[in-house]
């Protein structure tokens, strides 16, 4: 190869076997490109992780999740009490043998159903789901019954509702003793 030739042939079009001796060969090239891609993916992945993690703060400022709901005797048999609906999104329901705290969040898409005393059901205004007094769904699109919250008697004899723990019927959790109060 004369000096002239070397000048006109661009480096990239030189036969790689030939290159091996004095520069970046095929194997070296693949090694570098692998490292390059790994570094690139790690950087991008890290960046996206940062972005997504940023959406979830460590501290939340949300209203208290437990409240006291009077004495068990405040509730008459077979009634739905809507007193705590506004502030805590809970209905206190007493049926024959038990009291339980029913969530007011429709299991369909989260609207607040209304208690229709005359028809003895909860009816959701958004897409028409209906729930019996027990919280069991029987009409409309709601896929499952309303949830119940943890309920217990505090030391002062009042009912304590803890909304951080909920009980789902379809998982058989309504059997658990914390999900209702025997009366």
């Amino acid at each position: 190869m004369t000096n002239e030739d070397k000048k006109i042939i661009p480096a990239a079009s030189v036969n790689p076997e030939e290159m091996d001796k004095n520069g970046l060969g095929r194997r070296g090239f693949f090694r570098w490109i692998t490292v390059g891609w790994i570094a690139f993916s790690a950087a991008t992945g890290g960046f996206f992780t940062l972005i997504i993690r940023f959406l979830f703060p460590n501290v939340l400022f949300e209203p208290p999740q437990t409240f006291k709901a009077g004495f068990p005797n405040d509730y008459a048999s077979n009634t739905v009490d809507t007193r705590y609906k506004k502030k805590f999104n809970v209905w206190m329901v007493r049926d024959e043998g038990s009291i339980f705290a029913l969530s007011t969040v429709c299991t369909h898409l989260g609207c607040t159903p209304n208690w229709l005393g005359t028809e003895n059901k909860f009816k959701c205004p958004c897409h028409g789901s209906g729930f019996r007094m027990t919280g069991i769904n029987f009409e409309g699109p709601a896929p499952r019954p309303l949830e119940r919250f943890k309920i217990s008697i505090a030391t002062d004899g009042k009912i304590l509702v803890d909304k951080t723990k909920s009980f789902k019927w379809e998982k058989g959790e309504w059997e658990q003793s914390e999900s209702f109060l025997k009366v």
């Binding site: 506004k86 369909h108 607040t112 205004p125 958004c126 897409h127 028409g128 699109p141």
Partner: peptide, 24 residues
């Protein structure tokens, strides 16, 4: 008022097709 949902409660009109699908 988070405690009382208006009755009926409708999505903006351009999403009402979706809301109708939600019934089914």
């Amino acid at each position: 008022n988070p405690a009382s949902t208006p009755n009926p409660s409708k999505a903006p009109w351009y999403f009402l097709g979706l809301q109708e699908m939600l019934v089914y």
